[in-house]
Design a protein around this nucleic acid. Sequence first.
DNA 1: GTCTATATCCAGATAGAC
DNA 2: GTCTATCTGGATATAGAC
Lengths: 201, 201
Amino acid sequence: MARNRELNQKMRDERREQILSNALILFAAKGLSATKITDISAASGISQGLIYHYFQSKEEIFRELISSAFEKMNTACRELEKLPLPPREKIILAIEKLLEGFDVYENTSYYYLLILQATVSEAVPQEVKDIIRNQSDFPYEVMERILIEGQKEGSVRAYDARDLAVVFWTTIKGLGLNKAAHGERFKSPDPRILINIFLKE
Amino acid sequence: MARNRELNQKMRDERREQILSNALILFAAKGLSATKITDISAASGISQGLIYHYFQSKEEIFRELISSAFEKMNTACRELEKLPLPPREKIILAIEKLLEGFDVYENTSYYYLLILQATVSEAVPQEVKDIIRNQSDFPYEVMERILIEGQKEGSVRAYDARDLAVVFWTTIKGLGLNKAAHGERFKSPDPRILINIFLKE
DNA sequence: GTCTATATCCAGATAGAC
DNA sequence: GTCTATCTGGATATAGAC
């Protein structure tokens, strides 16, 4: 009996994941309001009504995706900061991994697009805005700290660290968007171009 | 009689402009599909039905805004390229003017957001997609040509010029988005950070 | 030119059969 | 768990009065 309940729960979770992953691509491409429940159900190969056995509303699906996007990003930042490496190496590693991510994991660029849509759009539920407000500064803070450390170390250029952190993330986000928008045609730029923005030669 | 017709036409055009400028802000913030005709009419202080005396549909408003956004951007690029300046100076000028634009003209960042929404979204009419496909490469091409000239001149770093052009525009677009998303809190970074990406010291 | 009222459509969510 | 049928609300666009 308990076995059965566990198995059911597992199947339920898997189905939820499947719906979420289809919804991610749709939300990223069309935004929250232009994505219909029928789009999501069709992409998942199930009837429209069945969606509501797994989620309470379209907004709930959106909210879960946004939460997990920030969770992934902020976890990665936390781990980067804790690595036992000098700031200079952290910056190089971050840029290389982020650029690599665009090519290797297809979902990555969709997440960038999703977060962007949600950050920018006024047409998202309040709870989602709250998640964004609470979580979106963290990557900037981490990068600013690393850059300041790097300036003490002497490896990072002597511009305002906050400015450098802003340039760091806007460039990464911009590239993620480019990839999402142009798909096949997109080619990551030479990482040395980006590394050179922050590090002295 | 002709006087009257001219005057009427002028008033009509002015009203259209006023509707367009309100719609720009709404579309940029919420996207095409989440922006309701009533949002636009309310922002313009007129009844919902009256919108249809000036435009055939919500999509037509969107299309006009996209057209004029690309027109402005591509005209600016064409003029930049024609300036009687060495490549090095063109790059510095472009970065300074683009960053300045964020602070001086409020509308600029909304246009970036609008173009981004339209480029990325599958939920836009076919005609809009066609405009985007035909117009969106031009700024990249211009910048690539300027960068190549600069490499011949010896002032521009020796990375792949296409990569540099991509980094140029993704960084600018990213900053435009930041400004649009964070409004008040946004502060343009030191232009020298960006100039240094492209030019040798 | 401008408004109010309304026809029409479409999407989110629910109910109930299997 | 899954589907089909349906309720309900809201948004586009039109019609018609002023």
